[in-house]
Simulated scan of single mutants.
Amino acid sequence: MNLIKIISAFALVGVISTSCGQTKKEASDAVDEASTEVMEVVQETVETPNIVGVAAGNENFTTLVAAVKAADLVATLSSEGPFTVFAPTNDAFAKLPEGTVDGLLKPESKETLTAVLTYHVVAGKFEAAAVIDAINKNNGKFTVTTVQGGTITLSLKDGKVLLTDAKGGTATVVMADVAASNGVIHAIDTVVMPQ
């Protein structure tokens, strides 16, 4: 009788061990599957953000981002595009006469602000090499039509791209080819103005 109890006990331990082994394998498979799903989500998140996301993630564009929000252009600049944005830096906005930025950010100035901001946007993706090539192929000047409807003339000065606005004001590209999922950003040192 003792022998039967001992054999039964060993059999029970064997069943429990086998059962635990299967449970561990199932748990391990479940963890592997969950890890794969997490990695896929992380990879999707790591993709390059859109123009608004890139600007929002850069401390040099806080004024621009505030202006884009005030003009209700977040959805537009987050759309598929592609767009080329000549993005004024905070220093560029600081060059405007005192009170100009605060005035533009007021709700009653939304139409003017929208015109100014969309004057900095060109439909299509034009990286620096393409811009320089277009300038060189067009006798040193290349005119682009902005989303606002006005034009900006692009030229080269001391190896840098220079923008000339409708009023004759100029801005220089200080940082080119900032990639975004829906286009490209070129940072400029001065706010350009439509007529």
Rank of each mutant, 00 (worst) to 15 (best):
Asn2Lys: 15
Leu3Cys: 08
Ile4Lys: 15
Ala9Gly: 15
Phe10Asn: 15
Phe10Trp: 14
Phe10Ser: 15
Ala11Val: 10
Val15Gly: 06
Ser17Met: 14
Ser19Gln: 11
Ser19Lys: 15
Ser19Pro: 14
Ser19Phe: 14
Ser19Thr: 15
Cys20Leu: 10
Gln22Glu: 12
Gln22Pro: 09
Gln22Gly: 10
Glu26Met: 10
Glu26Ser: 06
Ala30Gly: 14
Val31Ile: 12
Val31Trp: 03
Asp32Ile: 10
Glu37Thr: 11
Val38Asp: 06
Val41Asp: 12
Val41Cys: 13
Val42Phe: 15
Thr45Cys: 11
Thr48Gly: 10
Asn50Thr: 09
Asn50Ile: 05
Val52Pro: 10
Ala55Gln: 04
Val65Gln: 02
Ala66Pro: 04
Ala67Glu: 00
Val68Trp: 02
Ala70Val: 11
Ala71Gly: 08
Ala71His: 03
Val74Glu: 13
Val74Gly: 13
Glu80Val: 15
Glu80His: 13
Glu80Gly: 13
Glu80Trp: 12
Gly81Phe: 04
Pro82Tyr: 06
Phe83His: 05
Phe86Leu: 03
Ala87Gln: 00
Ala87Glu: 00
Pro88Ala: 00
Asp91Trp: 13
Lys95His: 03
Leu96Pro: 02
Leu96Tyr: 06
Pro97Arg: 03
Gly99Trp: 11
Val101Cys: 06
Asp102Ala: 12
Leu105Ser: 07
Glu108Cys: 09
Glu108Met: 13
Ser109Phe: 14
Ser109His: 14
Lys110Gly: 03
Thr112His: 07
Ala115Met: 08
Val116Pro: 01
Leu117Pro: 00
His120Asn: 02
Val121Leu: 01
Lys125Arg: 14
Phe126Asn: 01
Glu127Ser: 04
Ala130Trp: 12
Val131Gly: 02
Asp133Ser: 08
Asp133Met: 05
Asn136Val: 15
Lys137Thr: 03
Asn138Lys: 09
Asn139Pro: 14
Gly140Arg: 12
Thr143Ala: 13
Thr143Phe: 07
Thr145Gly: 13
Gln148Asp: 06
Gly149Glu: 01
Thr151Lys: 08
Ile152Gln: 00
Ile152Trp: 00
Ile152Phe: 03
Thr153Glu: 05
Thr153Asp: 06
Thr153Lys: 03
Leu154His: 01
Leu156Trp: 04
Leu156Cys: 10
Lys157Val: 13
Thr164Gly: 05
Lys167Ser: 03
Lys167Pro: 03
Gly168Phe: 09
Gly168Gln: 09
Gly168Val: 11
Thr170Lys: 08
Thr172Ala: 07
Val173Ile: 14
Val174Thr: 14
Met175Lys: 10
Met175Val: 07
Ala176Val: 05
Ala179Ser: 11
Asn182Trp: 07
His186Met: 09
Ala187Val: 02
Asp189Val: 02
Thr190Tyr: 00
Val191Leu: 04
Val191Tyr: 00
